[in-house]
Write a protein that binds this DNA or RNA. Structure first.
Length: 315
DNA sequence: TGCGTCAATGGGATCC
DNA sequence: GGATCCCATTGACGCA
């Protein structure tokens, strides 16, 4: 590609255009600048590399360099060889143009160059750099809104986790109470015909169920931390397009949680219903009391994928 | 003097 | 094949 661009002004060729050959559009822009509202811009000509620049350009244009810079009393405006920032007026004009359209058609480029007393190439470069700056700012904005969204999600998730834990404890408590009632009723009905080999009561006393509840609470702690790490892990890879804020769209909220967790949630629901419908009749060993359902239990506090959208968007 | 900003360069990719 | 874009980088400049 570079052939055309180099013809415009890459390195020493630009120098030639501006300072020596006086034969192409760089010079044309220079002439045009005399009638522009930005006449006298220090940025019109780029005599790059005249002072301490690339060696190749220096050697090639050394005589011109000496001629141009021999007079140290030259004022800032007339001293070439340094990069000059665009004037405030030029930048304002370009900014307004950029607001209208951030892409630059050839006709518009030439017109802007005429109006500003710049080379068309300079206008194109300014737009190029301006787009890059805009993109950087956009990325920062996207990051901020994404982070805010994530923080909000995390906060919601944690509060829902607590609420779920509370509800589960409530269910256990109610189950125990119901078991006590059944026990009392069963004892009064069968007290006369109690057999030694009778299976143990389907409803264990509250004190015997405690380990399970304690274990589940312990598990919650692990669950919360693992869920957090899941959120973190699944966050960055989805951010594939820095320009767009697509991550904030509702449909993407499901990406925050791993799909496999929904299976575990189903297991936990099964286990919970088993506990309620088919109570354990035997006293297992202590380890068995605490751990039989832990694998399911630990991972069960995630929300099913289909529920995530609901709890998040209806919160 | 270090650092941030910005104009400009160079190379690769894409479009027409 | 020319024009333009994007991206990484360079170098000049201004400022604290």
């Amino acid at each position: 590609m570079s052939s055309s661009r180099k013809a415009y002004g890459g390195g020493s060729i630009l120098l030639q255009d501006n300072g020596l050959s006086c034969s192409n559009e760089a010079l044309e822009a220079l002439f045009l600048s005399n009638s522009s509202p930005f006449h006298g811009s220090r940025s019109i000509v780029n005599f790059e590399n005249i002072r301490g620049g690339k060696a190749q350009a220096m050697s090639f244009y050394q005589s011109h360099d000496q001629e141009e810079n021999g007079d140290e009393d030259l004022d800032e405006c007339s001293r070439p060889g340094k990069k000059r920032r665009l004037t405030v007026d030029q930048v304002q004009f370009l900014e307004k143009s950029f607001e209208v359209e951030n892409k630059l058609e050839p006709e518009r480029k030439v017109q802007l160059a005429k109006d500003l007393g710049l080379q068309p190439r300079q206008v194109a470069i300014w737009f190029q750099n301006r787009r890059a700056r805009w993109k950087t700012k956009q990325l920062e904005k996207d990051y901020d809104s994404l982070k805010a969204s994530y923080d909000s999600l995390k906060s919601n998730y944690e509060s829902l986790l607590k609420e779920k834990e509370k509800l589960k404890a409530e269910v256990l408590s109610l189950t125990d109470k119901q078991g006590d009632k059944d026990d009392a009723r069963g004892n009064s009905e069968t007290s006369d015909a109690l057999e030694p080999s009778q299976p143990e009561s389907p409803h264990k006393p509250v004190s015997e169920k405690k380990p399970s509840a304690v274990a589940s609470i312990i598990c919650k702690q692990e669950d919360l931390s693992s869920a957090n790490s899941n959120v973190y892990d699944s966050d960055s890879p989805h951010y594939t397009d820095g320009v767009h804020s697509s991550m904030l769209e509702p449909g993407d909220s499901s990406h925050v949680f791993e799909p496999e967790q929904s299976d575990l949630s189903q297991d936990e629901e099964d286990n919970l219903s088993k506990t309620l419908v088919h109570p354990v009749y035997t006293f297992p060993k202590l380890e068995e009391i605490v751990y039989p359902d832990q694998s399911a239990d630990c991972g069960s506090y995630e929300f099913p994928v289909e529920d995530q959208a609901l709890w998040f968007w209806s919160y």
